[in-house]
Design a protein around this nucleic acid. Sequence first.
DNA 1: GCCTGTATAATTGTATACAATTAATGTGAC
DNA 2: GTCACATTAATTGTATACAATTATACAGGC
Lengths: 238, 238
Amino acid sequence: MENFEENRVAKSRSLAKMQSLERYSLHSYVFNYIRDAILNGRYKPGDALVETRLADELGVSRTPIREAIRQLELEGLVISIPNKGVVVSGVSQQDIDDIYTIRSMLEGLAARWAAQRIDEPNLKELEEIVELMEYYTKKNDFEQLTQLDTRFHGVIYEACASKVLKHLLDNLLRYVERARRGSLKVPMRANQSFNEHKSIFEAIMKRNAAEAERLMAEHIARAILNLHSLMEQSEERD
Amino acid sequence: MENFEENRVAKSRSLAKMQSLERYSLHSYVFNYIRDAILNGRYKPGDALVETRLADELGVSRTPIREAIRQLELEGLVISIPNKGVVVSGVSQQDIDDIYTIRSMLEGLAARWAAQRIDEPNLKELEEIVELMEYYTKKNDFEQLTQLDTRFHGVIYEACASKVLKHLLDNLLRYVERARRGSLKVPMRANQSFNEHKSIFEAIMKRNAAEAERLMAEHIARAILNLHSLMEQSEERD
DNA sequence: GCCTGTATAATTGTATACAATTAATGTGAC
DNA sequence: GTCACATTAATTGTATACAATTATACAGGC
């Protein structure tokens, strides 16, 4: 029938999105696609997700769609009613606030454990990141700073040596990805943010677990405050 | 072919497990089946999960198996290597310890929010649960106490009015389900546990958020200590 | 022996076919 | 008009078929 055409679509899709991944599968592609669409607001809460429609839209069969939906269901991004369908649940502003509160605790815990358990290579990488942060903060390069921020926290997740905690934080971070990217684009905040990162690094280096936890918790708490003032400004825009 | 036989198996399965659920689907059944098998230690870390083998074992096709595996993957219970297969990751003792530490923070947060936000019906239910706990503690009915404990925490998850926090805690609780059930079966602990629950309830009733948080965090922290002493005793048994 | 390449089998990945359930559409009674 | 009920369409649930990939086994060369 139209297998060739569909194959072509699939190929170009994979090239566009999976350039950095050596291995992939359709369900993971679909999962990321739908999740991003929900987190970006393209699929809105209440929207129905029809399998065949998604399959057509993405040029794949229903099987990988269903696998992805099952994962989204577990993440709480959609709600599935058996034999009826799935609707987008989405992430409300209240959810984002809650996530930041939760993160401030869990990132604090991660910093505490990292201070106790971090090894030399990770400590060295953290130092390097902080140096780069200083450089790009002066340059006002927000794109680089956002990436460095992700790396900074990622190294700490790694260094805390807890599969469970890392897993939780990775997920929470994805939920607030969009909010986070905005938050760092404020010049003043970038400067403040650098100082906070530096202090956290120093506390970890000194193996001061309590201090690292406190500083990290405050760091995240401040991020949400900043986010709020940011939203008040651009209230009419969105 | 052997469709009739397979249908029969499926029917009896659904009756056995889904008696409390009005609607179900095979993937959720498979998900629960495999998750329990992993959490109970029947499937051990490193074991390969072969789709066809599971499909035969459960008398269903590969489709619901795959959907369930994708969910287990997201939960971190299995690790999937594309085109190769999935292996059981499992929950180590370290994981359980970490979960209890994380829970002590998050349950504390839930108690704090619950103290601020709980409504009358939930408060009333909490009071009722505490009364029943007193009753069954005197009777040493551990089965009832375990259920009441689940209900107590469940009501607080509900009362904290945070979809995200409730979701996280529900998941964490499932991970330590087995450990938790053992923990309450120690008579002394049951008594202590009752007093802790009562104090937490009173703090929430008095709308004392800080106190509720502190008491709850200590309650969970004590549970892990108790669990450790329990394991030292039965070290040779398992 | 052991390495290497090749054929075969096992397994995963994806698409499609069919069944079951739910939503919608329309028709007749009143 | 509208309510009840039957009929059809749309959608989800499950199983199976086929393709692609990876593991296994085995033969020949060195």
